[in-house]
Design a protein around this nucleic acid. Structure first.
Lengths: 104, 104
DNA sequence: TGAATATATGATAATATATTCATATGAAAA
DNA sequence: TTTTCATATGAATATATTATCATATATTCA
């Protein structure tokens, strides 16, 4: 393999590792994991999430933004509210894996 | 290991969520994820890990301790060295899931 | 249009976390 | 033993992250 290819491969792996760390960071905070877990039940607006996890609106909005930037949740407007939901099934799978691990 | 407000929570499910957050915290740091990824190749001593991930010995030892406390890696003595390895297959699966997610 | 409601955001302070440096420990070789 | 090598650890500093407060924005409804 050429030096350049090795460099590119290594570089790509590095970038992937950083992205991975960023992804796991999203599940690494108890507020965010509560939000994700809450959304397992389905689409919810910000107010509902706040009630469910007993956190104030600003904190929740800040974390929802982080989750959305990380593409773990998506949102759509519904009248006055914004509805949030899980972006895909990997989120559930990752959390399920984690649960399996700690349950041993 | 949990923070003060986390300690006040009583519910079993809540407790599980906290443990989950702690687990994911371990994969949420690029140094730690490099170490884990490095150990995908098999058992390695601290010096080898340091070389592989290009980090100094003290930083690596500190993170190895965190990973061991979280039961993501295990260690055993081998002469002068300490050999570290992944504690179980869930670690690989979790990271594989994460990779799948970001590769989409 | 203006008021009411739902959500987002910027700044700040509190807290948590990671890295570095110096040094300690512990096993093995001399 | 004493020395050397490999790893661990405590303290301090640097950095990142989070929750809160005040306020901004956007949508609906009177």
């Amino acid at each position: 393999m050429h030096t350049q290819d090795e460099y590119l491969l290594k570089d790509m792996e590095e970038e992937e590792l950083l992205d991975l760390a960023d992804l796991f960071k999203m599940s690494a905070d108890s507020t965010r994991i509560r939000i994700l877990y809450d959304l397992f039940e389905g689409e919810k607006n910000v107010g509902e999430i706040c009630e469910d996890i007993e956190m104030n609106q600003s904190a929740v909005s800040h974390q929802l933004k982080a989750l959305k930037t990380a593409k773990l949740v998506k949102s759509k407007r519904d009248g006055k509210s914004i509805l949030y939901s899980l972006a895909d099934d990997h989120v559930k799978t990752i959390i399920a894996m984690g649960k399996e691990h700690i349950e041993e």
